[in-house]
Design a protein around this nucleic acid. Structure first.
Length: 646
DNA sequence: GCCCTGGAGGTTTTT
DNA sequence: CCTCCAGGGC
C-alpha cells in the first residue's frame, strides 16, 4: 500500500516537520523513541519526490536490520524509485567504495575481509616472526590496541614513536609488520575498511564519490569514531547535503572509538547547519521515561535534555530482586509466563543483560518453564568452528593468498602438515611470491608425510578452484564439505554435537543460496550483526545484550544486570568516562521498553548504584537502604530529574 | 615431526 | 563452557 508523504507529514509534530523540511545541512538531536527512523525515511522519500535521483542518496544506519526497515519504509512512500537507494551500514558502504577503488591502493580485486579472529591469528604469527615473547605481547590485546590506533587515525610510527622504551618500539614494529602481512594476503581487517576508504577519498577519486552520493543521511551519529567522521566530512563538504540524527545519551561504543562529541562538532564544520531537537517520546510509558531521565541526568558530560512523554497511561515499573542469580532467573521466567497469560506475545518481550555469559541462567530457567526463547548473538553462527573451517576453504578458492585461511585449512582435516611444515610452506610462498595453492605444489624440504599431505591438499584446492568456476557459492560449500572429508568426519563421529555441526554446514549452504558470486557471499559472512538473527515470526522471547538491543523496542523489557559490578560493569570503573558510558548503556536499556519495565537484580551481589538514581517514588521503596546493606558505601545521589510520569 | 588427550585457565560490550 | 598448551605416544 503506497503512502503519501504529505499525509504522513500531517501526522508529525512540529519538531519532526522542521527536521524534514529544513534545508540541509541538518543536525537532529533525537531522544530515544522520538520517531527518528520515521523522520529519516520521510525526508528521504520527500527528496526523491522533489527530484533528487534515488541513486544519489546514501543513508547509513547502525545495523543491517535498520537499513532494511528504512528501505521498506521509503519503498512504501515512493515505490519502485527506492530501488536505486543505497542504504547500508557504514562498513558495507566502505566495501562498496573499495570494490571499485581498492586497486588504487595496491590491492587485487579479490581482496577479502579479516575479522577479529583472523587478525589475532595473523598477529600471533607476526609476534613469533619478530621473536617476541607472546606472553608479553598478547595477540588479542594487541588486536585491540591496533584497532584503536586505526580508528583514531594513528600510524605505526605514531604508535611506536612518541613514547620512549622498547615496548612501544616493538608495538610499532608489530603494527607495521601486521599491515605488510595483510597486504600480502590481499586482506583488510574491519578497521582497514574505514581507513582505506578514507585513503581513497584523499585521491582524485574523491570527486566522483562526492557526485555519486550527493545527499547523505546518517543515523546514530553519536557512535561514529574519528575515521568515520573524517570520511563523512570528505564526502559531504562540497555539496553540504548532510542530514544527521543522533543522541549523545545513547553513545555506547566508546570502547571501539566512538566519540559522541562528533555529533556536536558537526555544527562547527557546518556552521550553517540547522539544529532540530526531537524531545517527544512516543515509545515508552511515562514512568519508564521518568526512570530513564532520572538516571541519565546524573551524567555531567552531556548537553541538558529531557525526554518528554506523550503517553497518558501509567503502566508500572517493576522491581524484581532475588537472592541468587538462578532464583532471579526463575522469578523472571514466572513474570514472563504471567505476561504471556495476560496476552503479551513472546516476541514482544526481551531480557537484556550486560554480558553474554549472563544469558545462561535465563536459558536454563526458560527451558525449565517451557518458555520459547532465542538467544541473540551469543555464539555467532559464523564463529562456529565447522563454519569457519568450511569457509576457510572457500576463502582460499577466492583468494589463494589468504594466509589466515591457509593456516586454518592446512592441517584440518589432519593430513600430516604440522606447525613446522606449515612454516616451511608459508616461507616458501612469500619468498617466491607464490599463492598458497602453488606453494603446495613445490614440496621441497618437507618430511615424507607432510609432502604427501601437501600434494593431496594441492589437489583438493585446485579441483575446488575449477569447480567454483562453474558452480555457485552454495554448491561450492557443499562440495568443500564432502571433498575435504569434513562431512565424513562428523558423520563417523555420530555424537549429537557432530550432528549439530553437520546441520550448521547445511544451514550455511542454504544461506549461500542467496548469493550468486563468491565475493559478496564471503563479505556477508563477515559484516553480519547480532540483530540479523532475530526471528520475529517465531513468537519467541529474545535474550540479548544491551548493546545488541540498540534501536529495538519491546512491550515488556527485563533489565537483568542491575547488581553491583553488573551495570556499571566492574571493568568499566577503571576507565575514564567509564561510568558515564555505563549510565548511557543503562539509559538505552530502559528506553527499549514500551509498556512494562522490569528492573532485576541478584541482591547477593549488591545492587547497582543506578537503581538508587531512579525516582524514589517509583523504585526506591523496593530497595534496601544502601548504607545498611552494602559493604561499600554507595552515596545516594540526589535525583535531579523530574518525574514526568507521576 | 606430528597427533591426541587431559587439565587448566579465563569471560565487557562488537563491526 | 570452550580454548590453549604441555606432554606422552607414534
Amino acid at each position: 500500500m503506497r503512502q503519501n508523504t504529505e499525509d504522513i507529514a500531517s501526522r508529525l509534530n512540529d519538531q519532526q516537520v522542521a527536521a524534514i523540511t529544513a534545508p540541509a545541512p541538518v543536525v537532529v538531536m533525537a531522544g530515544a523513541g522520538s520517531g527518528k527512523t520515521q523522520v529519516l525515511s520521510v525526508r528521504i522519500a520527500r527528496e526523491i519526490e522533489q527530484g533528487v535521483p534515488a541513486g544519489a542518496i546514501l543513508a547509513l544506519t547502525f545495523t543491517n536490520k535498520a537499513a532494511r526497515s528504512m528501505k521498506e519504509r521509503v519503498a512504501q512512500m515512493v515505490g519502485e524509485r527506492s530501488k536505486e537507494l543505497w542504504i547500508s551500514t557504514f562498513h558495507k558502504m566502505c566495501v562498496g567504495v573499495l570494490r571499485k577503488e581498492a586497486q588504487r591502493l595496491g590491492y587485487k580485486d579479490n581482496w577479502v575481509i579479516y575479522d577479529t579472529d583472523d587478525a589475532k591469528a595473523m598477529l600471533g604469527r607476526v609476534i613469533s616472526e619478530l621473536g617476541l615473547d607472546p606472553k608479553i605481547f598478547v595477540a588479542s590485546k594487541l588486536a585491540g590496541v591496533i584497532s584503536a590506533a586505526k580508528n583514531d587515525m594513528a600510524s605505526w610510527q605514531h604508535l611506536g614513536g612518541h613514547r620512549g622504551g622498547n615496548y612501544y618500539e616493538c608495538l610499532g614494529r608489530i603494527y607495521r609488520r601486521y599491515g605488510d602481512w595483510l597486504k600480502a594476503a590481499n586482506a583488510m581487517d574491519f578497521d582497514d575498511l574505514l581507513t582505506n576508504t578514507y585513503e581513497v577519498l584523499l585521491t582524485p577519486a574523491l570527486q566522483s564519490w562526492q557526485e555519486r552520493y550527493r545527499s547523505v543521511f546518517i543515523d546514530e551519529y553519536q557512535d561514529t569514531n574519528r575515521i568515520q567522521n573524517e570520511i563523512i566530512w570528505l564526502l559531504t563538504r562540497k555539496h553540504r547535503q548532510l542530514f544527521v540524527v543522533g543522541d549523545v545519551d545513547q553513545s555506547i561504543y566508546g570502547f571501539r572509538g566512538a566519540r559522541w562529541r562528533n555529533l556536536l562538532d558537526l555544527e562547527n564544520r557546518f556552521p550553517e547547519a540547522k539544529r532540530v531537537v526531537l524531545e517527544y517520546n512516543y515509545r515508552s510509558a511515562p514512568r519508564i521515561l521518568a526512570c530513564a531521565n532520572s538516571v541519565i541526568s546524573n551524567n555531567n558530560e552531556r548537553p541538558q535534555k529531557v525526554l518528554r512523554g506523550t503517553r497518558p497511561d501509567a503502566s508500572c515499573v517493576h522491581t524484581v530482586i532475588r537472592e541468587g542469580k538462578d532464583e532471579l532467573a526463575s522469578a523472571v521466567a514466572k513474570e514472563v509466563q504471567s505476561l504471556k497469560r495476560s496476552g503479551v506475545a513472546g516476541s514482544e518481550i526481551a531480557v537484556l543483560y550486560r554480558t553474554n555469559v549472563e544469558s545462561r541462567a535465563y536459558e536454563e530457567a526458560f527451558l525449565r518453564h517451557k518458555i520459547a526463547h532465542q538467544v541473540i548473538g551469543a555464539t555467532r553462527f559464523y564463529d562456529r568452528k565447522e563454519i569457519r573451517d568450511v569457509l576457510a576453504y572457500a576463502r582460499l578458492v577466492h583468494n589463494p593468498f589468504d594466509l589466515a585461511a591457509f593456516s586454518r585449512v592446512a592441517n584440518w582435516p589432519t593430513r600430516g602438515i604440522g606447525a613446522i611444515s606449515l612454516e616451511i610452506i608459508t616461507e616458501h610462498a612469500s619468498a617466491r611470491g607464490l599463492s598458497f595453492i602453488d606453494a603446495l605444489g613445490d614440496t621441497e624440504g618437507l618430511s615424507t608425510p607432510a609432502e604427501k599431505g601437501a600434494r593431496s591438499l594441492n589437489l583438493i584446492l585446485s579441483s575446488l578452484v575449477s569447480y567454483s568456476e562453474t558452480y555457485p557459492p552454495s554448491d561450492l560449500i557443499a562440495h568443500i564439505a564432502d571433498e575435504t572429508g569434513i562431512t565424513s568426519i562428523y558423520q563417523e563421529e555420530g555424537a549429537k554435537r557432530a550432528q549439530d555441526r553437520l546441520e550448521n554446514i547445511e544451514e550455511l549452504c542454504r544461506v549461500a543460496k542467496r548469493y550468486s558470486d563468491l565475493a559478496s557471499f564471503l563479505a556477508s559472512t563477515k559484516l553480519y550483526d547480532a540483530q540479523d538473527d532475530i526471528e520475529e515470526q517465531r513468537g519467541e522471547v529474545c535474550l540479548l545484550t544491551i548493546h545488541a538491543s540498540k534501536g529495538l523496542e519491546w512491550k515488556a523489557v527485563f533489565v537483568v544486570s542491575l547488581h553491583d559490578g553488573g551495570l556499571p560493569h566492574l571493568r568499566s570503573l577503571e576507565e575514564k568516562g567509564g561510568i558515564e558510558e555505563e549510565r548511557r548503556l543503562c539509559y538505552v536499556a530502559l528506553t527499549r521498553a514500551k509498556d512494562h519495565l522490569y528492573l532485576c537484580a541478584d541482591s547477593t551481589r549488591g545492587l547497582s548504584q543506578f537503581l538508587y538514581e531512579m525516582p524514589e517514588n517509583l523504585v526506591g521503596k523496593a530497595l534496601p537502604d544502601p548504607d545498611a546493606h552494602l559493604q561499600r558505601r554507595v552515596a545516594r545521589p540526589h535525583s535531579k530529574a523530574r518525574c514526568l510520569g507521576s
